[in-house]
Amino acid sequence: MCQALTRLVPYLVILVLALPFRAVSQEPIAIGLLLPDLSHTKVISAAELAIDRANAAGGYMNREFKLVIRTAEGFWGAGSKESVSLVYEDQVRAIIGSLDGRNGHLAEQVATKSHLTYIETYATEPTLSQAFVPWFVRVVPNDNQQSLTILKQIAKEGGGKIGILSKETYDTRYAVKSLTKAAAGETGMPPLILDLDTTSNIQDDVLEKILGNNINHLVIPLDALYLKDLIKTLGKEKPELKIYGTLHFSIGLENRKDAWDSYEGIYMVSPHLDRDKYSALPNSQSAYMYDAVNLVINAIEQVGTEREAITDYISKSDYSKGVTGSISFDELGNRQGASTLIRIQNGVPQLINPLN
């Protein structure tokens, strides 16, 4: 009997080797997405596009990537609870947020305690990067960077009196603070802060102050639907007025699909996207998300799935394949390089060359 089995062994080995090879299924590599709510479909689609393309290319060491999406909606502090769930329950390798500044701080605190990379793709509030921790980076320019870009363009336009629209929200307060400090530093005089009436779509009081105070440059560090009518009226009443929008202003226009020609002549902070080449990314916010997911995937492909290795690689690397431009970070996690400015000319966004 034993001799018979011994004679069969070579044939059994050949038979096994002849069977079709199937890779051993392994757990996917989870990347966390933290959003205000699930209505941000374009942002979700951009993240899924990056994941799908990475998986189509083979994933990482026979493992696919997957998104785990949680939201910060609901009671105050929900963002912190959901961040904890992403870290310990979902075992994500990194968290990517598209949050306002207040919720961004909560997610950052969780990432810091767990030594997990947190990448912000929307919040521009400067204090997010003042915790001096390596686990936080952002792919969008912060308020201070945007303010300097806008002030440089104002100087090129001959300078003059500056007005800044404002309203009582967390992110807007920080943006106004950054712009006020930059304006005072560049011009030697404080700008005029113009508080919007958020209870009304009619901004007659603000319009009167702009027209009556000899303002040469108006900066809009926020988005609101009623601003369109104000801008239209200013174009008729004061056509020589130069208007500038921050990144959140330009993202708001894109999300509402407002026609560019309604904002003719306005300068805006925005990444310069090749919209024909990247037609699957319909706006700036989705482009920033696409880049952030690819940052994490690229880091994993280079150094593996260990969380601290991913953080170390991202914080020190120079990623040249970003659709919003080359991406690298300073020691505080801010994206390096000046924020880019576009201007609407003949109904088309045109890049303003910073060297001109």
Rank of each mutant, 00 (worst) to 15 (best):
R7G: 03
L8Q: 08
Y11R: 15
I14G: 05
L15Q: 14
P20M: 10
A23Y: 13
Q26I: 06
P28N: 09
I29F: 10
I29L: 09
G32V: 08
P36E: 12
L38W: 09
H40T: 03
A46Y: 04
E48M: 07
L49S: 14
M61G: 07
L67T: 10
G74M: 15
G74H: 15
A78E: 11
A78K: 08
G79P: 00
K81Y: 09
Y88Q: 14
Y88F: 14
E89C: 09
Q91I: 15
V92N: 01
R93K: 12
D100F: 03
Q109R: 14
K113F: 12
H115Y: 14
T117Y: 05
E120P: 02
T121M: 02
E125Y: 12
P126R: 02
Q130D: 09
P134E: 05
W135H: 12
V139F: 08
G160L: 10
K161F: 10
Y170F: 14
T172S: 04
T172Q: 06
R173T: 14
A175M: 00
K177V: 10
A182P: 01
A182N: 00
A183V: 06
A184F: 07
E186S: 05
T187S: 09
P190T: 12
D197M: 06
D205W: 00
L207Q: 08
N213K: 06
L218C: 04
I220H: 02
P221E: 13
D229A: 06
E240T: 15
Y244W: 03
G245A: 11
G245S: 05
L247P: 06
F249P: 01
L253M: 12
D258I: 05
A259W: 02
D261L: 04
S262I: 02
I266R: 00
P271K: 11
K277P: 02
Y288K: 01
M289F: 08
Y290L: 14
A292N: 05
E301M: 06
R307Q: 08
R307A: 15
A309V: 09
I314W: 13
V323R: 11
V323C: 02
D330N: 15
G333M: 05
G337S: 13
A338P: 11
A338S: 15
L341M: 14
L351C: 01
L351I: 04
